[in-house]
Design a protein around this nucleic acid. Structure first.
Lengths: 241, 241
DNA sequence: CTCAAGTCTTGACGACTGTCAAGACTCTTC
DNA sequence: GAAGAGTCTTGACAGTCGTCAAGACTTGAG
């Protein structure tokens, strides 16, 4: 047992592992460590898929394992316990979703282009990542009951607030205006609109698939409305300087 | 077994029961029926208290019974199963909270009075009914995963939207203005702000009690900020006609 | 009082959960 | 190829859950 196991925060690469021309023993170590990390990512992805489908409450370790190439016992080899796995998932998820609008922010040349790009992206993520979004809201809600989740949930929430703030600040710049509201207020308002659209979207979506419709089930009228709402609302979130 | 049991929607009073000078047998029937209804209310209240404390996921029937004067088996005498109890709770909860701002709407004489009254009431309900609010958000979120809850959740959500709409419509009237946003958009935005404040409030609150502070634990800085936010935001939600 | 209907408690059931230990398998190193 | 560390599977454990049936207690009618 010379490999760092799940029991500690073992994210720091060892000294030897930093060396590009390592001795065979050390390269092997690297390989093992890489494989180990890869497995954790693999498990996190299986867990996220399951969590997005069933929600935090009804997701069991056996269910997660069934959505992965492994058996249920393996989880405790890579993670101390269930909450450790879920927290790892949450952080992993965070690292992927925080930069969603950055490309648009960086490339848009006019306020209207940014506004349209943002609204389109909002629509797209609602349609293609609905399970992940409902999982996020589920976790954030669980944090109201379970203090163990609060630190990570707050971190993600702040990150999302920053993400929105970058959009609004840039939009204000391009509009020769200034943000009208406190960043947290603006974030909360947009988040509330997105949350409502998500709920409506999921209800519509399931109603369609239940009716046996063969259309692209991810396209709903509610998600279309979300784009319009965001598009219309954005100018109201800035004010003349 | 001549009394209507839990297995059906038995809310309709019988013909005989409508008679104010009923025969003894019928009065007895009324008494029994009343007691039966009272028990259901009693159980619903115990369940709501438990749900507000533990959340939807971690609330068991045994826990609910422990917060009531009864034992765990009695639940299945008054409700078909767990979901029936919870749905009953949800409807019961709905009937109590929908009129929260109506008195202010009806009595306020000026726009500013309404605005202040609304913001104060918002603050008050955040502080005194935090567990119920987080339960509501929990249930609404569960509806994203569990179709069984959607009908009731949608009904409540619409009711809350109406409630907010009454406030805004009246506020617009008193301001010689008109509502600026679609009612659903306005509701979603205010809801988002309230949700964020609730989460922040709970975190602050628990951090204080954990630190062993003896102050009135229901008062937090975040809840104060909520009042200011609502107070400031309200004028922006209406526009010149 | 007697009896029956209504009400509630108790204890059990099968299913499911997170956790963990024992062992089998795989791969690297000598 | 032998040895041993690393990886994964299997099966069991203690606990909890929703559900339900059997019976004890309570209440009111005759």
């Amino acid at each position: 047992m010379f490999l760092a196991k799940c029991h500690e925060l073992d994210r720091s690469p060892t000294l030897a592992a930093m060396n590009p021309v390592a001795a065979p023993a050390e390269r092997s170590f690297r390989n093992r460590q890489d494989k180990y990390d890869e497995r954790r990512v693999q498990l996190a992805e299986s867990a996220l898929a399951t969590l997005g489908e069933l929600g935090y409450a009804r997701t069991s370790l056996r269910e997660i394992a069934q959505n992965s190439p492994f058996s249920h016992g393996v989880v405790h080899y890579y993670f101390k316990n269930k909450t450790a796995l879920i927290l790892h998932c949450v952080r992993y998820y965070k690292s992927r979703c925080m930069t969603r609008y950055d490309e648009i922010v960086d490339t848009a040349l006019t306020a209207d282009e940014l506004r349209r790009g943002f609204a389109d992206k909002l629509l797209e993520t609602l349609r293609t990542e609905a399970p992940m979004h409902r999982l996020w809201y589920d976790l954030r809600n669980q944090a109201m009951f379970d203090p163990e989740l609060r630190e990570d949930v707050s971190a993600i929430d702040n990150g999302l607030c920053d993400m929105i703030d970058r959009v609004l600040t840039r939009y204000a710049e391009l509009s020769d205006a200034v943000p009208r509201y406190d960043r947290n207020v603006a974030y909360s308002m947009l988040d509330g609109i997105f949350l409502a659209a998500l709920l409506e979207h999921l209800i519509e979506r399931d109603a369609r698939t239940e009716a046996g419709e063969t259309d692209d089930a991810s396209a709903t009228e509610s998600s279309d409305r979300l784009r319009d709402k965001a598009f219309t609302l954005l100018p109201d979130l800035v004010a003349a300087p």
